[in-house]
Design a protein around this nucleic acid. Structure first.
Lengths: 344, 344
DNA sequence: ATGAAAGCGCTAACAA
DNA sequence: TTGTTAGCGCTTTCAT
């Protein structure tokens, strides 16, 4: 196959129609797999197209009312292993469905939610996947009003009108805490995520619930705010370690902060996990490259991406499908960063 | 701003024209910043558009001969920190230029180069950025023939007809080897990349050149093939360490392999860097999260992405611009994974 | 400075 | 089963 672009004009369905000796409508039918075309005709058209190197012009197709087969993906940026895993899942599923991917990063749109909508409305995409932790409700409302198909990944729709995918954050955090407790830890430091996010809140709640269920008193000094960034994990840990009676284990609300925590622990000359155990949340690829390898709660990020695509395609296919929320299970992944606390 | 989609028909330039009491052509002129529109008229149009929540339909615009402002990016996939860094740079620069990003991953197209071309020709994108290490020359030739604007990132165009961005691989490797030699190492293991790639070859050559310049004999047993994947770094290192006289330092052709190498070293109970020093290449974000932190050669991945975009936009703007190749400098980043060898 | 008309490449009724 | 005819929303001559 080769593309004519400079040599003469681009190949259109007219050229193919001419070459095959049929009308343009027939060519269109063939390329859209519409019924009502004799097999012989179909073959003739396909051959002509092949010979000419015809490729459908998506712009024209979707303008004319066809499907563009392009879906949008709105993400904060690519600086985050967490987001990347989701994108990979999205890409996989989209490939299976023969759709193209248009990527929008929010940092470019500034914080102007109207700009995001612009993307949505530019006509290129048939629907949009949102991996935007901090979604303004104004934006969500506008999106909702637009009737445009969209699905939320790892965020809850406060409006409750769209499909969305989540993970069992509460249960995951509970399991993590329980694991640490089972190991014998009683003084467990907790580094929160951005507490405006439901995922962060759920993890916090799960952690607290586990402590309560095991009659471990809640010590506020052991709970430090973080923001899901590596640096905050580092800072929080330094703070935790400076306590007169520091924790023997630290539960970071995500892996990036856990990595920061590891740095901090080592910096004060302590050993992981001998002196302090560390557990994370997410199970991003890097969690396997730390030393010691990070024990964490696996969140099925890739699958969340795949499921998100399925949900979106479903909405695009049939806008009347009632929206649904799918929650996927999290899971404890034991590696090398935790062990029982030293006897005092 | 809000988008009408379900409520009535989508807002078109006709609606705006009607609202503003002008013709559609004038609205078009305004939105394309064409000259020959009175300031008062312009304002009137803008206000009407604002009021109606008009958003340009890219499909129609580009069909009608305008610019789509969409560029394509062809990458192997997102499993690789290296690629991700480039994508980030691409995204940044595109944002600055007000362009949209269409991402194509090669794994979806199988190995059929014709399929990639399909992307190119589907009319959505105005040009394409290629971050495809193993590019078939057939594909390249087709692309070349098509006259479609494209630029190669971190790959050399064997045809020599397009713009491309590279880094000083040879020099980087030379510096890495020299650093190790300066530290006192004489037995240095080298893990190659995929030797079909010029970047891998250049790194190899740079390494060898440094050894020669310092009168260090080349020992073939110390040179092991890798494929740029973490696993191969691990395997190669196990092999190196099993030698009767193992190396005191290992130079991996990229960071991912260096990470694998670290695993292997630790697995045989040796210490990094006390027993064996490790140096990588790329400086992906993870290089800072290993323990000990990885000393490596920084390749300006993000900037390569940015420069690639600039080059592409230049080609799109003016197809007659002679293609150019820009080579960016690499740089030694000293962290904690190397130190002088132990005295025997 | 602005409007009218044609057409970009395609799909979708409607005919035949 | 196939062809004909309108547009989709926009840009772009060419008039005015």
């Amino acid at each position: 196959m080769s593309i004519q672009r400079n040599s003469g004009h681009p190949i259109t369905i007219y050229d193919v129609a001419h070459e095959a000796g049929v009308s343009d409508a027939t060519v269109s039918r063939v390329f859209n797999n519409k019924p009502g075309v004799r097999e012989a005709t179909r073959t003739k058209v396909l051959n002509a197209a092949q010979k000419l190197g015809y490729v459908v012009n998506m712009q024209a197709r979707s303008l004319a009312g066809g499907k563009s087969n392009v879906v949008g993906l709105l993400i904060p940026g690519l600086d985050n292993g967490y987001v990347i895993e989701i994108v990979r899942g999205v890409d996989q599923e989209l490939a299976r469905s023969g759709c193209e991917l248009m990527v929008y990063t929010t940092h470019r749109a500034g914080n102007d939610s109207a700009n995001y909508l612009r993307y949505v409305a530019n006509g290129l995409t048939e629907g949009i996947l949102l991996v935007v932790p901090l979604l303004s409700s104004e934006f969500l409302q506008n999106l909702e009003n637009s009737g445009y198909p969209y699905v939320l990944i790892d965020a809850v729709n406060t409006l409750g009108h769209s499909s969305s995918v989540n993970a069992t954050n509460w249960q995951g955090a509970y399991k993590a805490a329980e694991y640490l407790i089972g190991l014998g830890h009683r003084r467990i430091g907790f580094i929160t995520g951005i507490m405006q996010l439901s995922s962060a809140i759920d993890r916090y709640d799960g952690f607290i619930a586990a402590l309560k269920d095991h009659q471990i008193p809640i010590d506020d000094a052991l709970i430090v705010r973080g923001d899901f960034q590596q640096q905050s994990g580092y800072d929080a840990t330094r703070q935790l370690l400076a306590l007169s009676s520091p924790p023997t284990a630290i539960f970071a609300s995500n892996d990036m902060m856990a990595v920061g925590a590891m740095d901090a622990v080592r910096e004060v000359g302590l050993d992981i996990p001998a002196d302090v155990s560390i557990i994370g949340f997410d199970n991003i690829p890097q969690a396997m490259n730390t030393y010691p390898k990070l024990t964490t709660i696996h969140q099925p990020l890739e699958e969340m991406g795949r499921v998100g695509v399925k949900l979106l395609l479903e909405q695009i296919e049939n806008p009347d499908t009632p929206p649904k929320t799918i929650t996927l299970a999290t899971q404890l992944v034991i590696r090398d960063s935790c062990q029982p606390p030293k006897r005092e």
